[in-house]
């Protein structure tokens, strides 16, 4: 899929489809015969961003490879809600081994394919943020370092959702989780140093690193497609809101992902060979409050005694991202300040 130059269409660059475009220029998700890599019947919560993100990414990978994808999945919501015996929702070859070893299992798959001389089949590994940023980190780093021919996709819902919404290293500061309760003087998760996996991935100098959200399908699909143009280790970090864990309305999933990006809290960019090549600029900038207040995990910031200090700290994180990645043009930056 190419990115669209047709700006004047009603919805040209933003909606899933566009009846005015040639079939091949439309998104994968607009196609009646898309793979539906993860099919109806899965047991994800209503409005699950991870289920959506997985279909988006894998269907795109399927198109990019003419259907030659093998997927490896870490333990987590995605695995549990898709394959409870006796039913699987996957329509592609799929393997689940453990929580922390998906990158290595994928290495094994890729090695086997190489040994067998099978060149057209490509390997995608996927995990939640826990399986990526925490327990799977060692294996992931190893896979990166060896530059194994695997596209690793992290579906970041910012916590251990499958086990009941506990904190992970990807949980944002101040967020309430089951292990960072909204009690005490500093309710919610502490302000740590963060563990910015996309940048850690870039530090491995792997050929391709990108971030995306379920709010921008065109961007996501383009990145998957781009990723499939490379061989070697590639990393895609997709923000997938979790209605259950975030305490958001099930219909807000995409909206919230969009606000994460538009506020600057979640920078959307892509890097090749360790260098940022492009960023998705903010289109309608919003203060972080707009993003935070839709989520009950941040409700304690907006109670009768609003924590303006904490909100300001989160805002400064967004501002730092905006500056680091140049998410808004300097002129509009002046206007908004």
């Amino acid at each position: 899929m190419t990115s669209q130059d047709v700006h004047f269409y009603q919805v040209g660059s933003f909606a899933v489809g566009n009846r005015l475009l040639e079939q091949e220029e439309r998104t994968v998700q607009a196609q009646v015969d898309r793979t539906n890599s993860i099919d109806s019947g899965h047991r994800a919560c209503q409005g699950c961003g991870e289920a959506l993100g997985a279909r988006y990414a894998l269907d795109a990978a399927m198109r990019a490879t003419n259907g030659q994808i093998v997927a490896v999945n870490a333990t987590g919501c995605l695995e549990v809600f898709s394959t409870p015996y006796p039913e699987t929702s996957w329509r592609i070859p799929w393997l689940h081994s453990l929580f922390g070893n998906a990158p290595a299992v994928a290495t094994g798959v890729a090695a086997a394919l190489r040994a067998k001389g099978i060149e057209d089949v490509r390997v995608v590994a996927q995990a939640g943020d826990g399986g990526t940023v925490d327990i799977g980190f060692g294996c992931l780093s190893g896979m990166f370092e060896r530059n194994d021919d695997v596209l690793f996709i992290c579906y970041d819902n910012e916590g251990y959702m499958n086990t009941g919404v506990q904190r992970s290293a990807a949980t944002p500061p101040a967020a309430r989780t089951a292990t960072t309760k909204a009690v005490g003087a500093e309710p919610g998760n502490t302000f740590g140093q963060g563990k910015d996996l996309p940048r850690i991935a870039m530090a491995h100098n792997i050929p391709y690193v990108a971030t995306a959200t379920v709010a921008d399908l065109h961007d996501l699909e383009r990145k998957v497609e781009r990723a499939m143009e490379f061989h070697g280790a590639r990393y895609l970090h997709v923000l997938v809101p979790c209605p259950l864990g975030w305490g958001s309305a099930s219909n807000e999933t995409i909206h919230i992902a969009r606000l994460a990006k538009e506020s600057g809290l979640f920078p959307v960019f892509e890097a090749e060979d360790g260098v940022v090549r492009s960023v998705s600029p903010i289109r309608r900038r919003v203060p972080v409050e707009e993003y935070l207040k839709l989520q009950r995990r941040f409700a304690h910031l907006f109670g009768p005694h609003p924590r303006l200090d904490v909100i300001a700290r989160i805002q400064s994180m967004a501002d730092a991202n905006i500056e680091r990645y140049g998410l808004v043009s300097p002129e509009s930056l002046e206007e908004s300040s």
Binding site: A15, G17, N18, T27, Q29, A30, D39, A44
Partner: peptide
């Protein structure tokens, strides 16, 4: 016929 509903449904 923007295909949004078709695309955004997590449950196909």
């Amino acid at each position: 016929e923007c295909d949004n509903c078709f695309g955004v449904c997590p449950d196909n």
